[in-house]
Simulated scan of single mutants.
Amino acid sequence: MPASGTFNWETSERWVRGTRGGVTVVDSRHPVLVWEASHPVPRYAFPEAEVRADLLRPAAAPPATGVHEGSTVFHDLVIGGETVANAAWSYPALPGHIAFEWFLHDGEVLEHWYEEEEEIFVHPRDPYKRVDPVPGSRHVRVEIGGRVVAETRRPVLLFETGLPTRYYLPPEDVNLELFEPTATSTRCPYKGIASYWSLREGGSVPADVAWAYPDPIPAAERIRDHVAFYNEVVDIVVDGVKLERPVTLFTERLLES
């Protein structure tokens, strides 16, 4: 497993493709998974021969040095009459390879990414990260401001490396009349596309406090339509024991909303 907080890479045997506007920009059978020291999730870098280099131009306005592990060679992507600034770069430690932005970019770079024949979102899946949805029989109660909003004895417990256990409850065991759906939608490479609810009364509870995956990827099928709540801002009682509210990478955003 790569050491966190350091620059690491390893080869992958997955067939990876990336497209924009129906044009295949990346078609690689020799991708390299890259972990940057400042990012907890991996990226891909590809051999130059497996990238449409003819669509790349030297970046007109490259970012300041120090971005992407000291990379100084950046590329704009020119395709379909559009120019995507700083869409790709080369790592000094990985000569002959080109990486593309997937996230933390002002706009979409490549519209679709595939591993083999499965579309993937947000970032490549980390081979050292597990996401296990496990059916359970624990008595789970969710409270907001002292009021019970959901209660079940048939949760699906989702164990995800680096995050607290999430408790996914059958929708019929959640008082959805207390909530209203929002327009928020997020993507997870391990679970799929999520839809959200906010508490109708609002108050001190952040918006989008609950979510579900109506059409999860096959590996997460067990959580289909089940509703989960952010442990960080609601009270979850499991078998009579109130859980401590964890501090996670979501906490700051939730408390500011």
Results as ranks from 00 to 15, higher is better:
I217M: 08
A99F: 06
V205F: 05
Y196S: 06
S185C: 08
E117L: 11
G136P: 04
L94H: 12
A150F: 03
E118K: 09
E151D: 13
R141W: 01
Y190S: 04
D106Y: 14
R130L: 14
E172W: 07
V149A: 13
V205M: 09
P218E: 07
A93H: 10
R154V: 07
I217F: 12
E180K: 05
F179R: 09
A150I: 03
V227F: 05
E111N: 04
V237G: 10
Y196G: 03
A150T: 03
V205L: 14
Y167N: 05
L158I: 04
T161W: 02
Y190T: 01
E143L: 12
P218F: 04
A93T: 07
P135A: 04
E118W: 10
F159M: 07
G107F: 13
V142L: 04
L157H: 08
E172F: 06
A93L: 10
R153V: 08
F103Q: 14
E116F: 14
R147W: 08
F100H: 08
P171A: 05
C188M: 01
A183N: 12
G107W: 11
R224S: 05
I98C: 14
F100S: 05
D106W: 13
D208A: 04
V233F: 12
E143H: 02
L169Y: 13
H123L: 02
R141L: 09
H105V: 00
P216S: 08
D225P: 05
V149P: 12
R130W: 10
E101C: 12
A219Y: 02
Y167Q: 04
I98G: 15
V205E: 11
C188H: 11
L158F: 04
R153M: 09
S198G: 06
R187A: 15
I223N: 03
E117F: 12
G145R: 00
L104S: 09
S198R: 09
E160H: 01
A219P: 01
D173F: 09
E116T: 01
A207R: 15
D132K: 02
L104I: 02
P155H: 07
H139I: 00
L157S: 06
A228N: 09
E117Y: 11
F100E: 10
W197T: 00
E160T: 03
P135T: 06
V140M: 06
P164Q: 11
Y213M: 05
R154Q: 15
V149R: 10
Y230H: 14
R224I: 01
R187V: 11
L169T: 00
G162P: 06
Y213P: 11
V227M: 05
R154P: 00
E143G: 01
R154D: 12
G136D: 08
V131G: 04
C188N: 05
